[in-house]
Nucleic acid binder design. Structure first.
Length: 329
DNA sequence: ATCACCCCATATGAATCCAC
DNA sequence: GTGGATTCATATGGGGTGAT
């Protein structure tokens, strides 16, 4: 689904911050009806928008819509592209969001971040630049962040009150769907891990590749460090759900329901070797024993120890729910 | 209600970056 | 080096605000 190369810049539409989608709809309508050549298309823009005149400025928008396959050019005339036709079938914002976020870096991670907390344009700027260092625009300049959030506002996914941007209920729904759409299950060989000698703790572990933008959001939140083991190599970190993925679909995209755990500690967590109590202390399964110095040092020896976590990282209610099921805490 | 002024969003041109 | 993509800075104009 993401084999096409991704682009950094998003292009604002004419007509103002909350009207990008209206503008896009009008463009698609005129293209479907008239299949204009480029000159006609430019003239149409100049007539439709009183403040617009620059050919280059118009072409910049058209090229962008071409890049994301909303439009396509054939024999000098403009048509709806494959993405444009798909969106035109239902004009649903979820479809449009999928089209945009497939090509533009950072839109999904912004929704994941907004799902957890409302943000100012300054914090959105910060979130985008830190979660996606490749964006690399001037941190003092918020234009780029504004263009992104204006697309989301135009789609009705984000609302602005005063200076604060908040996810709408539609936005929340689309965010929750996105975490499913962009994540992929795979189940290597239904790995069974036995803990110590006790068969009763035998469980099944499935590995999952989460949406890379969700993962990036989580790693940024925790500065790419496993709070249990201190492992700080992104390649060695998994996104671990406190309330399990399979049983709690509503919390799949909740930043405060996940931790970046080293692959080993992720498996240990999923298999209830240890857990975290509501005061963020490490609690270890009393049945757990090991000769591994690694596991002794990072788990056994840290029994009862305060972890570098707070309620802004992880929701104590999620920990409590999980611990109710663990049994020994 | 009208006018003058200010502020801010946005359209645009230019500079810069980057892949080929 | 070239062309396209991306970023940056600024002019423009519309809307809001407060004084008259």
């Amino acid at each position: 689904m993401s084999d096409t190369s991704r682009i950094r810049s998003i292009v604002p539409m004419f007509g103002g911050a909350t009207n990008y989608v209206d503008t896009l709809d009008a463009i698609i309508d005129t293209v479907r009806r008239t299949h204009p050549d480029t000159d006609m298309f430019v003239s149409w823009h100049r007539e439709y928008f009183s403040r617009v005149s620059s050919r280059e400025s118009i072409l910049r928008r058209i090229r962008y819509l071409d890049t994301i396959e909303i439009l396509t050019q054939c024999d000098g005339r403009w048509y709806r592209g494959q993405a444009g036709r798909r969106y035109d079938e239902n004009r649903e914002m979820e479809t449009l969001f999928t089209i945009l976020s497939r090509r533009n870096v950072g839109l999904r991670s912004l929704l994941y971040a907004l799902r957890e907390r409302s943000m100012t344009i300054g914090s959105i700027n910060d979130q985008q630049l830190k979660t996606h260092p490749e964006l690399g625009w001037d941190p003092n300049q918020t234009d780029m962040a504004l263009q992104r959030v204006n697309w989301l506002r135009s789609m009705g996914l984000v609302a602005r009150q005063d200076e604060i941007y908040t996810l709408t209920s539609v936005g929340k729904t689309i965010t929750d769907n996105a975490i499913d759409t962009w994540s992929a299950d795979y189940d290597p060989d239904n790995t069974t891990i036995e803990i110590a000698d006790t068969a009763e703790y035998t469980t099944v572990t499935t590995t999952r590749s989460v949406d890379p933008e969700f993962r990036a959001t989580v790693l940024h939140q925790h500065e790419s460090e496993c709070p249990i083991s201190g492992v700080d190599q992104p390649a060695l970190l998994d996104v671990a759900h406190v309330r399990p993925w399979a049983e709690y679909p509503t919390y799949r995209g909740d930043i405060r329901n996940v931790l970046p755990l080293s692959k080993t500690h992720h498996a240990a967590f999923d298999n209830a070797v240890f857990t975290i109590d509501r005061d963020f202390r490490l609690r270890v399964n009393p049945e757990f024993d090991t000769n591994s110095t690694l596991l002794q040092r990072t788990i056994l020896d840290k029994t009862g120890e305060q972890l570098p976590l707070s309620a802004s990282d992880i929701d104590p209610a999620h920990l409590a729910a999980r611990n109710d099921e663990v049994g020994w805490i």
